[in-house]
């Protein structure tokens, strides 16, 4: 399908235009390493309330609600873990042709992508992981750090 057919809701135009890349091969090398001082807090298990909130982000219908919800999530992350992810990549439940979506936590973008449609970096590096049913979603952090979150809230350590 063409990118014009994609379901896209832009609450606020993205700050910088994203560059389309080929779907195969990550845009950046996933960075599993991280600073020790960050690791302790950031690697704690995510509570069920947070998991549900991330799942609901996809289901919000109104743009205001979406933005408000994203802001709330961001605050939760900052308060609980000292850092908020840039966004999430997760499996898409809309059905064919969509397979995954990204949720940018700055409240700007909710995008659904078909299998071969390119996802902008740094989110694209999380696509293979997001398609696995083992993870509820993949957090994409500053610098390309990817943190897969299991269905029970445990975070896979980098």
């Amino acid at each position: 399908m063409s990118s014009g057919d994609r379901i896209r809701r832009i609450v606020v135009p993205p700050a910088q235009p994203t560059v389309a890349r080929p779907a195969t091969g990550p845009a950046i090398t996933p960075r599993w390493g991280m600073q020790p001082r960050r690791s302790r807090e950031l690697l704690r298990a995510r509570p069920g309330s947070l998991l549900r909130a991330v799942a609901r982000l996809d289901a919000e219908l109104s743009e205001d609600a979406f933005r408000e919800h994203a802001q709330w999530l961001r605050e939760q992350y900052l308060a609980g873990y000292g850092a908020a992810p840039l966004g999430f990549v997760a499996r898409c439940h809309l059905g064919h042709p969509y397979v995954d979506h990204r949720l940018a936590l700055d409240g700007r973008i909710l995008d659904h992508f078909a299998a071969r449609e390119p996802m902008p970096p740094p989110f694209d590096a999380a696509r293979s992981l997001a398609r696995s049913e083992a993870y509820a979603f993949i957090e994409v952090h500053e610098g390309g750090l990817l943190l897969p979150v299991l269905a029970d809230g445990d975070v896979v350590r980098p």
Binding site: A23, T24, P30, W32, A115, R116, A125, R127, S128, L129, R131, S132, A134, L146, P148, L150, D154, V156, R157
Partner: peptide, 18 residues
Amino acid sequence: AEAHAGFARDYRAALPTA
């Protein structure tokens, strides 16, 4: 558990998307 989770993550991440 940590080694096992990291192992699973790495082979899943290496799967081709197309």
